[in-house]
Design a protein around this nucleic acid. Structure first.
Lengths: 152, 152
DNA sequence: TTAATCAGTACTAACGCGGTCCGAATTTGG
DNA sequence: CCAAATTCGGACCGCGTTAGTACTGATTAA
């Protein structure tokens, strides 16, 4: 059971690599592929998706490249993942809103919703700035509410 | 982004339906399919997998059927899901233990591990007995799980 | 103008998932 | 005791999504 698709994983890695550089760092897709040791074409694809979601901005032309659209501290992992894999949901029920025909007697849904929120909160609580540090013990005092959340 | 596969979702529904009956309730795969309005063959497949994992026990023969191997209160959702979808992990890193060649410079792994644990805790905090009740406001184990994501 | 880079589209291969089928084991009725 | 009915158990296969690639066009600095 893999929760994130490979592309979403790549997306986080690439975005983290962009956050490593200074705030205004601009890197080409090729340079990012080099740094992350990922296939160039795939990195380009991921970057395009992230640009479409407004997480990174692409500059065209000879001296072009990508950079983060916002400071790394306010971009949550949930955003990056949602940009690539779509909105998060545990089951088909949670995303495909027209309730399935089992909703009348299926007692599991409210519980799924609760777990769903737990996952969303966990993903929204970590930002790209946190990801940059190789140490897992980032500052735990920051309330999750202050971070941007994509859970509906 | 759907976290659970359809089969895992079905597994929880079927197991919950088994938990609805009395402790010693024994139901055939067909009866369970009838109750859950799911395809018979798929229910049978799910039950087989659950039996293999030791969550339910199957009795063969004319008066055969399935029943829970343990009381519903000690079977967590995490168990049921893991039985069908395999061990849980956010990324390829977490499950395929031979660390990828990026592990030397990829600083994301410890953070994934943290989020991973939050999800696992959330799933492990709900049992089949909880699922039977259609009310979501059961004892406060799950909020504790989400809180655990920001507090080490 | 030219070289370099992003942006978009289209395409192919492959893995996994969902679903279906047939054989093995066991109980019940005669 | 035998046979038939019923049920579980394991194997199989097609379909869809995903990952990855390639190509063409648009944009900009030198």
């Amino acid at each position: 059971m893999i929760i994130l698709s490979k592309l979403a994983d790549y997306g986080v890695i690439v975005a983290t690599q962009l956050a490593v550089g200074a705030e205004e760092a601009q890197m080409t897709a090729s340079a990012l592929a080099e740094r992350t040791k990922l296939p160039r074409a795939t990195v380009a694809k991921v970057l395009k998706t992230l640009a479409h979601a407004g997480i990174v901005t692409g500059a065209r032309g000879a001296a072009g490249g990508y950079r983060l659209a916002r400071p790394a501290g306010v971009i949550s992992i949930a955003e990056v993942v949602a940009a690539i894999d779509g909105a998060m949901g545990l089951t088909q029920c949670t995303t495909h809103m027209p309730a399935c025909e089992r909703s009348s007697f299926c007692s599991t849904r409210p519980h799924w919703h609760r777990i769903n929120q737990a996952v969303g909160t966990a993903l929204a609580a970590v930002t790209l700035a946190d990801m940059v540090s190789p140490f897992g013990n980032f500052a735990p005092q920051v309330p999750a509410a202050s971070r941007e959340s994509v859970t509906p």
